[in-house]
Write a protein that binds this DNA or RNA. Structure first.
Lengths: 130, 130
DNA sequence: CAGAATATATCGGCTGCCGATATATATCGC
DNA sequence: GCGATATATATCGGCAGCCGATATATTCTG
């Protein structure tokens, strides 16, 4: 799943929204950090629809403007949930390894044992994702 | 930052590694879920080097095979840390909104108040990333 | 001796993101 | 009234990046 697709699904996770609303919502929920572009949106919407992760919920005409609302399917919710899980796991793995790196390398101010040997603690700290 | 770049940085976070070692390490640290391809690796390595996030640590010849070791720069560590933070925040936002969606829509079996109003708790739960 | 693993690297194709552009209506300030 | 901005849709071409295929070379295993 691409980053753009992830944020579209996230924007739709609490309620159905229309295209322009998704744009604004992604910016708001990411605290302005992620800006989903108009040129990106419709391709993502088409792909997610084709993949069965979202569906066209309804079309409304509000104040003379057409609004096309999309919502998550059950499959879409499951996919978003799984992706969030993967991201959290990846983030956790990175954090743990950064900590392991800080503990392993700079803890030794100058020369010590043989040459380039790792400190005994390092391998076990790495751990997996699950 | 691309996904591939994130995993390369993560693989290098605890200690310097060579290209083929990064490939194996990414697969291992992700519990087999992420498979970084050979055709992807060297482009990523070049870009990360150009961006100053990694540097060539040393070159060794072990058992007749050349090994080119890379390591994270301070900037690389900071970038990886920031990206991990963003991913964790994104994952958290998705999880919260999924929960809000489940609470908002299917919790009401049939018609109730006005029309399409959200339950009072919903807006506050959405929250930002930071 | 053949095949797999280790280790490097390149290239073409395809996917996907983005900026620009187009169209249309409503609103706001001047 | 008129231009600028906001709302709302959509398309297209360029560019970046991932992947499969391919190439080369050595070591290890069967």
């Amino acid at each position: 799943m691409t980053r753009a697709a992830f944020f579209v699904l996230t924007a739709l996770a609490d309620q159905p929204r229309h295209g322009y609303g998704i744009l604004r919502e992604v910016e708001e929920l990411s605290d302005g950090e992620v800006q989903l572009r108009v040129g990106t949106l419709y391709g993502v919407l088409d792909r997610l629809t084709a993949d069965g992760l979202i569906v066209l919920d309804r079309e409304e005409v509000q104040q003379g403007r057409l609004r096309r609302y999309y919502r998550l399917t059950d499959e879409g919710v499951a996919a978003l949930d799984a992706e969030a899980e993967r991201m959290a796991a990846g983030a956790g793995a990175a954090k743990r390894r950064i900590a392991a790196g800080r503990a392993g390398a700079p803890a030794r101010p100058a020369g010590e044992g043989p040459a380039g040997l790792l400190p005994p603690a390092a391998p076990g700290l790495a751990g997996g994702l699950a």
